[in-house]
Simulated scan of single mutants.
Amino acid sequence: MLGLRILVHSIKLVVRNWRVALRISSPLIAVLLVFGVFMRGSIAGVATLGPDEGVSWLAIGVYLIAQTFSGTWVAVAWHRYVLQEDDSGAIIPSFMGRRVGAYFMQGVLIAIIVGIVTVVAAAALFFAFSGLNSLVLAIVLPLVIALVGLWLFYRVSPALPAVAIEEALSIGDAWRATRPYSGSILVLVIAMAAASGVFGALVELTVESSTYLYLVLVMVQTWISMMVGISVLTTIYGVVVENRDF
């Protein structure tokens, strides 16, 4: 199945090029280390969706801002490396301010569009299935809605790598380009959600045994999730827009 092949290929991109991946993602790694080591617990607070002991909402907010900034920087650099073999070879990737800014704004626009459509879809689903068992409404429907939101995001996701490599591709163009791959993208989303859930559950098993081990594993999980996620965007663009094969 193409969806699974995209996920596997994206993982292989990170594994095969792990040295380059570590170097290009150095801004993200720096953020993870600063908040994981020097502000102990901030990452745990984010991971548990609330402040941990001694961790303020301000610290979590600063962490999320820093992670978004560094993640956008890394995404632009990784897209350019994979799609154009653009790599300075430096420990810290080149900061292309205009590209990073445009990428961020494109991401915000996509988030707004996907958010609005998802909310409308959620309202329609809850109205249509309001007579079902409360357990279904509380667990199954939110899961379906989350998958719908992710599916919508990945349907328009080629617009992000396009910004990074300075190619003209609107959100509407991205939606039309991925139409033949809509089923494969749904399979991809389900596979990613399942893998993320299993990985996250394994990490959570260590939360009671050792705080430091838990923090290290959360940092590793965050890095892997972000790099594989960025690689998925890159792979989708390569397949859909550039007609690349694996």
Rank of each mutant, 00 (worst) to 15 (best):
V189W: 03
S196K: 10
T178R: 00
A201Q: 12
A122N: 11
S130Y: 14
T222H: 13
T222K: 02
G131E: 05
V216M: 12
I113A: 15
Y154H: 05
Y181D: 01
G149Y: 01
V156I: 10
I116P: 10
V198Q: 08
W223T: 05
T235V: 14
I145T: 06
I185F: 02
L213A: 13
F153K: 09
L135D: 07
V232T: 04
Y103G: 02
V207T: 10
L143V: 05
W151Y: 01
G101I: 12
Y181V: 09
R179E: 00
M226D: 05
P158C: 01
L125W: 06
L215I: 10
W175E: 00
V189Q: 05
S225M: 12
A121E: 08
G107L: 12
M96N: 14
I145P: 06
Y103H: 04
I116M: 06
W175C: 00
A159T: 01
A191P: 07
S196W: 04
V100N: 02
V239G: 05
Y154F: 12
A121D: 08
F126Q: 05
V148I: 15
V240Q: 00
L152Y: 01
S225Y: 09
I165M: 01
G115N: 10
G101Q: 08
G200K: 02
A193C: 11
L205Q: 13
L202N: 07
Y103L: 10
A121Y: 14
Q106S: 10
V240S: 02
R99E: 15
S134T: 12
M105N: 07
V232S: 00
Q106A: 14
I171S: 03
V239K: 03
L125M: 15
L143K: 12
I165N: 02
Y154C: 04
I110G: 08
W223D: 14
I190A: 15
A195F: 07
V240L: 07
L150K: 13
F127W: 13
V203R: 01
V220G: 12
L186W: 07
R155P: 01
L217D: 10
G197W: 03
R179Q: 02
V148R: 12
A124F: 07
L135C: 11
S225W: 09
I230C: 11
S134E: 07
Y154L: 15
S134R: 06
V114H: 06
F127E: 13
M96T: 13
T206G: 03
V120R: 01
I230D: 01
L202M: 10
I110P: 10
I113Y: 02
V203I: 10
W151E: 04
L215K: 03
V114Y: 00
V140A: 15
V163M: 09
F127R: 12
M227V: 15
